[in-house]
Design a protein around this nucleic acid. Structure first.
Lengths: 345, 345
DNA sequence: GGCCCGGGTGAGAGCGCTCTCGCGCCCGTC
DNA sequence: GACGGGCGCGAGAGCGCTCTCACCCGGGCC
């Protein structure tokens, strides 16, 4: 089966159907303005020959690629530590597939790669880009702006540059955090602590803000900075127990952090939730369901985030004029979160 | 910044450098056989104009795309439940990037999608494919064979079709399983059980085989089938305790399964590792390190698997004649595993 | 019955690149 | 100093497609 049978061209189909290349082209691209009998004949020829349009030739003239780049910053290790990434990708993929677009994945690794990505995007190989850029100092957004490629960001971008026309999709980190803390307060807890995420990411900042929204005049000692990792959660929890032995609830910036905190609490002989109630964030199933006790946490619809990002981008691409006259475009879409009650709070 | 400045073409660069298109093309593609002074002039013009070659035009004539498809079967939920997928992708991405190849991600969702993937691959949009196809009855391999696209599989393909010339990369599931079981035996355990994975996947079958290699005349009651999930692990462990209350060690097909088993053991009041030693497989960090006690497990170098797959494919693509005369091609490459000792065994 | 209008079709010009040729020039050789 | 061999370069064709434009033909109108 290694016959390198030359793939049939438009020309071949045209010859077989007894029409011109132009007519075949019309049929292949929708078939408007072609007599039914001819459409039929051409379709038949296409089938018989197993004709598949040459995308390269098509792109050359249309300047359309029907391909979208998904850019993921690797340092975003969080992205690799949990199924977040996979789920988001799944949402994106579904949406793109439904619109016959391909997904070109660009994983970046440190600073050097930014240039590569910038070059690639500027090179006009794809029609648009979906970018996950959650760091505050990320140079990527600026590069992308310069490349002039329609883009939707995943997560509220935290950089300081020109923000006009920036489109992003995020979950309601702040609202979710508020719900979590309110839930703890509703349980009668009064010494509610917060272990933050890495504060160079907007999601961590937003969750902290949500906590503060509810705990308006919280004891500053109840806020400990961590980094979204279990080890960070352990460290923070130890510090917390040391500083505020009377702590009776902890809202952790994510489930991994919560799992670390949980371990330290157990070691310290504190019962969860009786002595200390704990809530996480993300609803990372493999973690949240396996902790002891299972973790109460804030769920976000990750797959839907991906879908939405893709949908927004495609809508943008379909607008004939990619000019930024798109006044109707919302610059940010925020998806709701829900509190998932398990045993830890 | 929405200036749709027409991207410079070879022609433009040629004009600016005062040479012909052909010369610019030569320089852009390596610059052999061009005088240094001219190379210099052309490079300068390229920089000044910010010239980026039009990939579509290039592909049209070279029939090369410098792009590789990565096909992941979605039903492979396992792939989404752990960082396996992300890590493998990372390895693949690194290797492809190093060779200036793009990564086109194809996520399939049920049967209907197979046709889509087949069409895409047959459409000659990519130079090759990396396919994760771990199911026994998967129709994908056959489709791919017919598409005539150079392909490397991730995981030993389990299908029953024509196997000649099939290239795959796998970890040494069988050897790793042997190591795990031998370790348990070395601890003096005699009633060593095995909770299998989903046996329609070759990895599960191979791990079971490895167990059997060591436990040549194992009590069949010690083998319980599960499905790679924590819930499956719980169910299997309960059954096991019921059937063989004297069980003193468990080798679980993966870490998730082990975590489920661990929970049941704790509920049943069995101490780990004192009463029952437990070993997992995969070294899925977020799980293996968070269990109580931390899980002894078999680690595989997942990222390296990805790299290797990409490397094999690229090597294949570089061979001018893609004909299957490649007698030197190993049909399968198996990566070693290592036992990671933690507290559970 | 001639004219015009319009829908359906085909001819042909490119899109931006690569690659084959062939020409010219410089060097080495006798 | 004439000649042959190569190396460096440019001209030009063509990859497979889209899209504009002009053509043809039938029907409605005056």
């Amino acid at each position: 089966m290694t016959d390198t049978a030359p793939r049939p061209t438009l020309e071949a189909v045209a010859a077989r159907a007894g029409v011109s290349r132009a007519t075949v082209s019309r049929v292949v691209n929708g078939g408007d303005g072609v007599r039914d009998t001819l459409v039929e004949r051409v379709r038949k020829a296409v089938d018989e020959l197993g004709y598949v349009p040459n995308q390269a030739a098509r792109s050359l003239v249309t300047r359309r690629h029907d391909a979208v780049a998904v850019v993921v910053a690797e340092p975003e290790t969080r992205v690799f530590a949990d199924p977040f990434f996979a789920l988001q990708l799944r949402g994106i993929s579904k949406e793109l597939t439904a619109h016959d677009n391909q997904l070109v994945l660009l994983l970046t690794e440190g600073r050097d790669d930014h240039a590569r990505v910038g070059r690639y995007l500027a090179g006009g190989h794809v029609d648009g880009a979906l970018v996950f850029s959650l760091h505050v100092d990320d140079p990527l957004p600026e590069l992308i702006r310069r490349a002039g490629v329609p883009t939707v960001f995943g997560g509220r971008p935290g950089w300081s540059g020109d923000r006009r026309g920036v489109v992003y999709v995020d979950s309601d980190n702040r609202g979710g955090a508020r719900d979590a803390v309110r839930h703890l307060a509703g349980l009668g807890r009064t010494r509610i602590a917060h272990i933050t995420g890495a504060l160079d990411q907007t999601s961590a900042v937003d969750r902290l803000d949500g906590y503060r929204d509810v705990m308006v005049d919280a004891d500053p000692a109840l806020i400990v900075e961590a980094d979204f990792t279990p080890a960070g959660g352990e460290r923070a929890m130890r510090e917390l127990l040391d500083r505020c032995p009377d702590v009776d609830a902890v809202f952790a910036a994510n489930d991994l952090t919560a799992s670390g905190a949980l371990r330290v609490l157990r070691e310290a002989g504190r019962r969860v939730p009786d002595d200390v109630a704990v809530i996480g964030f993300d609803d990372m199933r493999p973690v949240a369901e396996q902790t002891d006790p299972p973790l109460t946490t804030v769920r976000q619809d990750i797959e839907e985030m991906g879908r939405l990002m893709a949908r927004l981008l495609l809508r943008d691409l379909d607008r004939a004029t990619p000019g930024e006259g798109a006044a109707g475009t919302p610059s940010g879409v925020v998806l709701p979160t829900t509190l998932v009650r398990r045993a830890s709070a």
